[in-house]
Computed example of a mutant assay.
Amino acid sequence: MPSGRVARIRTFHPRRGRLSGRHLDALERLWASYGLTVPTPEGPESDRPDAGRLDLVELFGRTAPVVLEIGSGMGDATVAMAAADPGRDYLAVEVHTPGIANLLALTERQGLTNVRIAQGDALDLVRHLLPPDRLDAVHVFFPDPWPKPRHHKRRLIQPAHVALLRSRLVPGGTLHCATDWPEYAESMRDTLTADPELVNLFPGFAPRPAHRPVTKFERRGTAAGRPIRDLIFRRR
């Protein structure tokens, strides 16, 4: 008998992967210091998150601008950016456990103190845990393009999600997206342009910024002959 609950539309594919001994060790030793689990609204009432309850100053141990990295993958790009940008703190969100473990190991290896890792749905994190007007930047690099038209509703960059992400930016904060799928790039540009509180910093697409490291998704797209497109918008 139907429960009446509306199924949630995920913007990502949950993926499984085997953990190496190094990754298991990193999770066991480092998660308590660097990690946090994003609660889901379907959980027990006592476990449901309250809007804006995550104290970023407490999380990082200092007051600094915060960058939200959505979909950090194996963490190489996040670590490279955080290492080159010590004045800002980086909160990476990922669902793939081997990627999270690898990011933990890389963070320790680099001796970084400005990286934290959240496991779970980025939209749940933003919606329920992050206060408005708090983030200096949001990075969405190579999200799942969901290329089939019937799956476009699962794309991360769509009007309601953009409005949510933008609301967590400080005025002047940036939303930086990148993709190697031409049709998704056009859709991203149109969606971001349509938001009345965002301003495109470049006419059309942005030139590739030097601060964004090359990722495996970018190399894969380049090898397949797909153009890489960056979009950088600023909150008014």
Rank of each mutant, 00 (worst) to 15 (best):
residue 24 L to E: 15
residue 205 F to R: 07
residue 12 F to G: 11
residue 94 E to G: 02
residue 1 M to T: 08
residue 52 G to M: 08
residue 9 I to F: 11
residue 39 P to F: 11
residue 79 V to D: 04
residue 7 A to Q: 09
residue 231 L to T: 00
residue 206 A to K: 06
residue 232 I to Q: 00
residue 77 A to I: 01
residue 87 G to E: 07
residue 9 I to G: 10
residue 8 R to E: 15
residue 6 V to S: 15
residue 28 E to Q: 13
residue 218 E to P: 14
residue 82 A to F: 03
residue 228 I to N: 12
residue 75 G to P: 04
residue 136 D to E: 14
residue 21 G to A: 10
residue 16 R to A: 07
residue 113 T to M: 09
residue 129 L to D: 10
residue 11 T to Y: 04
residue 58 E to L: 07
residue 223 A to E: 13
residue 89 D to G: 03
residue 196 P to L: 01
residue 155 R to E: 12
residue 117 I to H: 06
residue 108 E to H: 14
residue 73 G to H: 00
residue 31 W to V: 06
residue 178 A to C: 05
residue 216 K to S: 11
residue 156 L to T: 07
residue 216 K to I: 11
residue 39 P to A: 12
residue 223 A to W: 09
residue 220 R to W: 14
residue 194 A to K: 05
residue 102 N to G: 14
residue 205 F to D: 13
residue 79 V to Y: 06
residue 57 V to E: 15
residue 165 L to N: 13
residue 104 L to N: 02
residue 84 A to S: 08
residue 196 P to E: 12
residue 133 D to L: 06
residue 66 V to L: 01
residue 150 R to W: 08
residue 40 T to G: 12
residue 148 K to R: 14
residue 169 L to R: 07
residue 115 V to S: 13
residue 53 R to G: 09
residue 175 L to D: 12
residue 122 A to E: 10
residue 37 T to Y: 14
residue 187 S to E: 15
residue 1 M to D: 11
residue 13 H to F: 08
residue 86 P to L: 02
residue 143 P to D: 02
residue 199 V to Q: 05
residue 49 P to M: 04
residue 16 R to S: 14
residue 110 Q to I: 00
residue 19 L to W: 05
residue 183 E to W: 14
residue 235 R to A: 13
residue 122 A to D: 00
residue 182 P to N: 15
residue 65 P to D: 09
residue 30 L to W: 10
residue 121 D to K: 04
residue 127 R to D: 14
residue 68 L to S: 01
residue 176 H to V: 01
residue 1 M to Q: 05
